[in-house]
Nucleic acid binder design. Structure first.
Lengths: 109, 109
DNA sequence: AGCCTATACATAGATAATCTATATATCACG
DNA sequence: CGTGATATATAGATTATCTATGTATAGGCT
């Protein structure tokens, strides 16, 4: 990481998959959603976002389709696959386990 | 990271500093403390631990002293400095802010 | 005596995830 | 006609973690 990360490393894939649970979104929209839902605390840089989406495609956790946006711009829409939905479940439970473990250390040390 | 990290990346320094708030500890003891307090969920590998301690020394957040353990082995004891205590405060609040932001995304996406 | 496990520190090199910086292109607005 | 927002993408740097390895000693077991 260059200086202070805008994200907790290791959580980006989970956040992306989560934003796709309601409806397909394009990359730019995913980044906006994460920023807005987090009240501007989390920022997904392009250099993190697009490589992450490539990873997710390669793993088969999302699929992509070129479409036009409402404002008539070309964009690549990502849809969660069933494998992706399963993966999200795994990542969510691992994350919660980690956070719970960290909390125990922080409370008892 | 090689495969699945044993830690959430970016949280190790905070965890180490926290384990030193009660009393000085040596490296091996820090790793044990984190493991035990987290109910074996978090494991600090030596290859992560010792470089992290060097970083903390360089930053002036801990100081080190060679001593003998209770079982008569030589070990390097680390003590939190006042700058380290301040840094811990910063890292704790940043971490909590991150977790809160992630939770908002996970709940509202 | 010899062996193994746990304790204790340390470094080299691999891997991976993030960042910064750059590039392209189009739309809407002033 | 320029600027800002929308939209995608890649190259390269930085950094944090891991795996693997090496050293050394204490204590217990056979």
């Amino acid at each position: 990481m260059a200086n202070k990360p805008d994200l907790l490393p290791g959580t980006l894939d989970m956040l992306i998959l989560k934003t796709l649970t309601r409806a397909p979104l394009h990359g730019y929209g995913i980044a906006q959603a994460i920023k807005q839902l987090s009240d501007e605390v989390l920022t997904v840089e392009e250099g993190s976002l697009y490589p992450a989406l490539q990873r997710l495609l390669l793993q088969g956790w999302v699929k992509a389709e070129w479409k036009m946006t409402e404002t008539n711009r070309r964009a690549r829409y990502y849809t969660l696959t069933s494998a992706g939905r399963k993966q999200l479940g795994i990542e969510l439970s691992e994350f919660e386990q980690m956070i719970a473990a960290i909390s125990r250390v922080l409370q008892n040390a």
